[in-house]
Amino acid sequence: MAHSLGSQILRTAALAVLGMIVLFPVYWMAVIALTPTGFSRSLAGIFPQRITFENFAMLFSERPMLRWIGNSIFVAAASSFLSLAFGASCGYALSRIRFRGSGLVLILVLATQMMPATSIVVPLYILFRDFGLLDTMQGMVLGHISLVAPLAIWMSKGFFDSIPADLEGAARIDGCSRLSAYWHVTLPLALPGLAAIFIYGFVTSWHDFLFAKTLINSQSLWTAATGISSFRGEYFTLHELQMAAALVFALPVIVVFLIMQRRIVSGALAGSVR
């Protein structure tokens, strides 16, 4: 059909243009990263004139990029995992157990999300200074948990709400305690949701610059986000190195997403109840 063929071509073209607009910054990042150090300002076209990997080599040989990436992975994994464990248990309790003040707890948790991170970073700094948590990995993890946990609680409450309580009732009649019903029935069904929370937590922690810059001083404890910013000097910026670092910085998040996204499948609940 001519009509549908024409509209299909149009749609494909529109998608292609949109894709190029979205992906161009990433492409440009790659072009600069592959240009020899100091030459990015003399780029004439949109293609790299001479491709080199020396920026990447320099990142890992002359700068502690590997260490920064390692720190970032540790902080992001630990804070998202702990937020997940904390959020899932709170969310489960708020979803399943009726107790006085549960609504208030939810609202208070939400209220913490209403304040911008910039407004809590100073009180957090003072608190951490008093507890001796400044410039430590534990402090960093704790700081990121405070960013991620509130949403983890809300999201997991939503996921648990969507799992019929009858399933747990059935499990308890079938011989489970409350805890084993949670373990055998509710938790496996909540996995797609929990995976989404983990990804959210990982990405939030990974991208955080404010807390990382404020709570950590020692270069050996920097996360990659702080590391990348260090290429920007007072008088000049090492664009090529910075872009190479940014590319390396993006990889772990993509890997985590690809691993976890398989868990996010819809229709996991189909067939359980009518």
Binding site: D166, A170, V185, P188, L189, S272, V273
Partner: peptide, 20 residues
């Protein structure tokens, strides 16, 4: 008694089968 110790089995209106 906890549900598991009552020696009672139940068939739910919505079946409550474990979907996984």
């Amino acid at each position: 008694l906890p549900p598991k110790d009552r020696d009672v089995a139940m068939v739910f209106q919505n079946y409550a089968l474990y979907p996984h």
